[in-house]
Design a protein around this nucleic acid. Structure first.
Lengths: 259, 259
DNA sequence: AACTATCGTTGATCTATATCAAGTTCAACG
DNA sequence: CGTTGAACTTGATATAGATCAACGATAGTT
């Protein structure tokens, strides 16, 4: 009889601070590595599959979510049904913060592949963190990160052309890989060309053409959604952004771990 | 000898909770009107003039700011100097939250006209609010509002055409007026055509043409930057968004005051 | 293995909005 | 009260990327 083995994205119910993935998640905001013990609020874990909703737009706000593994898309919808993908949260990213102000989630959060996600009941979180200055700061930092990220995205979509947007997107994915201790040059894109196009405000055809073009210019190697290699400096050069070049990426990572 | 009279946007140094403008500012997030007394953190006031910087992009993060009166633009800059105006915070809006995560402000915040602004030293704010669950919630709500606002903007810029974007922008300005107890159909735009164009990702010429077109269709009456009248329902119809129609606006306002 | 639906690629054409080019208006200043 | 410069308007033309159209590849199903 074989011993029972936990799956790679092992479940964890209980205190946030004692979770094995803490360093890649909430812990990445804590300067003191022992401070994780302060994260003594309850979390509960859920596994979702491709297409499952974590929550719906308009649904009453109750919790924040942290992605432990897998990828999600967050979709905002206009009156007349047009959809805008506002982001692709992955491991260590939070979801749902946009719902607090209005009391209801502003987007649909949909799993792109198999996703392990933590539920942080907001009222509980707030009660538990009262008096814990570090935890308060952590929550605000988490929210601040989202504000900053959205502003960066506004800049990317507003002032860069199709090629620059695509390069920036690939570098962002690469950077996220690195943050999670995975290879920044070899990974799988969880989202379809249509999703990328929607997110970057480009037609599917344009996304496809740009990827082909990048491949021909030797900037990336890929097959379908599997990226085998990616020229970070070359793409950074195209994107007019230095922030994702490897040395800079490593530095960002170090900073993220320290703060 | 005439008595000394405070200017309209009267200065207020001391406790936030005792400020006369509290109801239009931090207080708008508090359900209980007496809860304002909980806002016992220190604030200090500054007056700025057109073109003055509240802070610079890259400057070390230290404080959040609340606009008491006047209008501001927040500008993010790319590597190669391209600028994106991410918003036009007005009375009751906060500035600077994007700087917490990285420890430095992400945008330049520049006064568009004469601005009265409150400085909330972040460390002091955090220390004072520790143990105050309502204040913690308030801060997170403030941040959440910005996340939501940026996502709405992403949707507007990504999925609406020039005409719809312009209509949406005018309605947003109108809505902000209403929130501050001013006329939603008669007000002055603090920003130039160039600023509007930059913010909406449109050429100045397109902004000008659309405004002229709206005037010819009887949707707005204006002279230079003074809007004398504005057909809220008509514009809402164009913009494919019902959220800014007058009944809805009044409801939003009521909700905002209750929560 | 053949079938089918979904997703991705590639080429041809079209269009919304940018860009270019001239004015026009207005506020500030000597 | 004429001068200047910035901000705005209006018309003509250009273009990046969308849209339309057709085809190819892949994974899941029977």
């Amino acid at each position: 009889m074989t011993p029972k083995i936990l799956p790679l994205n092992q479940l964890h119910n209980g205190k946030c601070g004692s979770c094995a993935r803490n360093k890649l998640c909430f812990g990445r905001f804590l300067a003191d590595s022992n401070a994780a013990e302060q994260l003594d609020f309850e979390i509960s874990n859920r596994i979702l599959h491709r297409g499952d909703h974590i929550f719906y737009s308009g649904q009453e706000f109750s919790s924040l979510y942290m992605v432990r593994s897998g990828h999600v898309k967050t979709v905002m919808v206009t009156e007349d049904g047009e959809e805008q993908i506002t982001g692709f949260p992955g491991p260590g990213d939070s979801i749902g913060a946009d719902g607090l102000a209005a009391g209801q989630y502003a987007v649909d959060a949909i799993a792109l592949d198999t996703v392990s996600i933590c539920t942080l009941h907001f009222d509980h979180l707030l009660r538990t963190s009262t008096g814990e200055e570090d935890v308060q700061r952590l929550l605000l930092t988490l929210f601040s990160e989202m504000i900053f990220g959205n502003e960066q995205l506004l800049l990317t979509l507003g002032k860069l052309d199709a090629q620059q947007r695509m390069a920036t997107f690939l570098l962002k994915q690469s950077h996220a890989q690195l943050r999670n201790g995975c290879s920044p040059v070899s990974f799988t894109l969880a989202m379809s060309r249509a999703d990328i196009g929607n997110h970057l405000n480009l037609a599917v055809e344009t996304v496809s053409r740009l990827l082909t073009q990048f491949k021909q210019r030797g900037l990336i190697k890929f097959n379908r959604n599997d990226i085998d290699w990616l020229d970070i400096d070359g793409l950074a050069n195209l994107s007019n952004r230095r922030e994702y070049t490897l040395p800079q990426m490593a530095e960002n990572l170090a900073t993220a771990q320290l703060n």
